Amino acid sequence: MSNLVRIAPGALEIGRPLPWTVYDADGNVLLRQGYVINSDSQLEQLFERGRFKPRKIDVPQEEIFEDNRDRNPFADYAEFLQSLEATLTAITDRDASARPRLLGLCRMIEKTCREAPDASLALVHLYSIGPTIHEQIIFYAILCQFIGRQFGLEEKRISVLTGAALTANLALVPVANQLNASNKVLTDEQRRVIRRHPQRSIEALKAAGITNPLLHTIIAQHHEQADGSGYPDGLSGTDIRPEAEILALAERYVAMITKRAYRKRMTVSEARRLIATLADGKFRPAIPKALLEVLGEYPPGILVRLDNNEVAVVTGRPVRARGPFVKAIFGPRGNRYSGTFERDTSLLEYNIRALEEPEIMPSMDFSLIWGFRS
């Protein structure tokens, strides 16, 4: 197949789910998205034999762009990342396509979150162990969609908030992966880069012709805190836009559940307990509450152990009297099922006993588990 290209070294990592399906040179599937590479030799073989299908990223026309495809968050994941990278590059290059690219990506994420909410939230948790900066930014945008809507923001404000989530860390992109991988104390220069990044991101947006005042305000304020301890201006209380607090909380949640070189990642339960304390002076109380309501006790994409000792992946949040929707992937004795089996967690046999927090996620065919066509 002529549209397949080689996988570049560094594009894949041991212990992380594949972001896209991998093919051989003839177009035959080698490994599906969600498979976890577990050895150096396997990684080397993929670099030698593996190919993937790059998506052609068109520059959307600002007034007429409308993507009417049914959204599958797992199939779209690689496109999100490619489109984000192209958008941020266009902004830093002051390219005329910057604004329509940003608008198009915002609309694509909004449509995906509306059509496939549980699967969109699952992306955040399935890829949260060691995400790149571009992945983290996509997670911020997804969470802002849900928190903003739960908080009660009108749709136009949620759209601007999503744009802010995608661009607020523009100035940090070149150094973010390096900072996350370091277990050393930050230098004074690194601290200056971090503190200046909101203003530098705004300057880049203005230079690219993206001049929405609310967008700039959200970015400028997303490290302020309600008790006045934030930066850059030490704002407090209602001087801070709720959109800025929503973005700040989305960033904080992703940081909690993400592994860093200098600390372990939190379990979802630990993160939920910490979020509950943030209503005490750091945020408007309604914003942490909105995130907790969005996530539920067992958010989609996490693994749980059932009372019959099966291990299952949570595929959907509770509906009415029924508990979270799950699909069993490991049997009671630890054997991997060849398929998946939906379990009703409201039944005693399938009650959720505990969270499973593996250091490496098991391989899964995400589209199949969530019922999408590959």
Rank of each mutant, 00 (worst) to 15 (best):
L249I: 08
R263P: 09
S229P: 04
E243W: 11
A276I: 05
Y262G: 06
V268E: 09
R265P: 06
G281W: 15
L247D: 09
R272H: 13
K259D: 14
I240A: 00
T267S: 15
S269A: 15
L235D: 06
I275R: 04
K282R: 11
V254R: 06
V268T: 09
V254E: 03
V254K: 06
S269P: 05
L274I: 05
A248Y: 05
G230Q: 02
E270G: 08
A276Q: 03
M256G: 10
G281D: 11
R273K: 15
K259S: 14
A255K: 12
E251R: 13
A250W: 04
M256L: 15
A271L: 06
S269T: 07
T267D: 03
D280C: 00
G230A: 02
T258E: 10
A271F: 04
L249P: 04
E251S: 12
Y231M: 00
A276N: 05
R260A: 07
S269C: 01
K282F: 10
R272A: 09
A250M: 06
A250D: 04
D227E: 09
L247V: 10
I257A: 13
R265D: 09
Y231G: 01
S229W: 07
G281S: 11
I257H: 13
T258V: 11
A276S: 15
G281P: 12
T277C: 08
L274Y: 15
V268Q: 00
E270M: 03
S236I: 07
P242T: 02
A226V: 09
A244C: 08
